[in-house]
Amino acid sequence: MMKTQDTVLIALFAALIVVLSLVPPIPLPAIPVPVTLQSLGVMLTGAMLGPTRGLFACLLYLLLAAIGLPVLPGGRGGLGVFFGPTGGFLLGMALGAFMTGWLARRWVSVSGSNLRTVLAYGVACIVGGIGAVYLIGVPWLASVTQMGLGKAALAVLVFIPGDLVKVAIASWVAWRVERVWPILRESP
């Protein structure tokens, strides 16, 4: 059962994803162009809140965009983005947050060593935050542009290095915060 605490956490993490989407792009190590922190916010939400609350926080963020609020990077929003070639990556975020949260809850152990904990977060973020997002995003891109699945997958490969840096940051932050403020294992 959802408690008030859970509803509030879902709402505030949705707001956090909005803020991370709107902050000016940040230069990351080893990446030539500055990147927005939107997908990092999605990974972090899943890794910190767990599957159900992470999914709802992400859906709430997408709802804000769908009803025409400029909450996507660059101040974009509205239904047009969902119907465009990259709409699948947006919907994939909801699945991504869920998967990240589900795996983090299974693999991250409270008593394990620090390195093991960060690695568990990292693998959860890779499978959820990259794998699940691309699982929906790439076929969507391929069908909208009719470029074929293989070529679509090849076209988005350039984003993988940036995503991996975000995975590293999200895992590190989730581990640091969970140590002082554990919420991953609360219900639901």
């Binding site: 605490q5 505030l12 993490f13 956090l16 940040i26 972090l44 940051i169 590190w172 915060v177 403020w181």
Partner: peptide
Amino acid sequence: RHPVALLVPLVVRTLKRAQQVA
């Protein structure tokens, strides 16, 4: 501007605020 130095305090503040609001 460093993402880790930014995110840890930002997330902790968000959690703290969530607890107060709840």
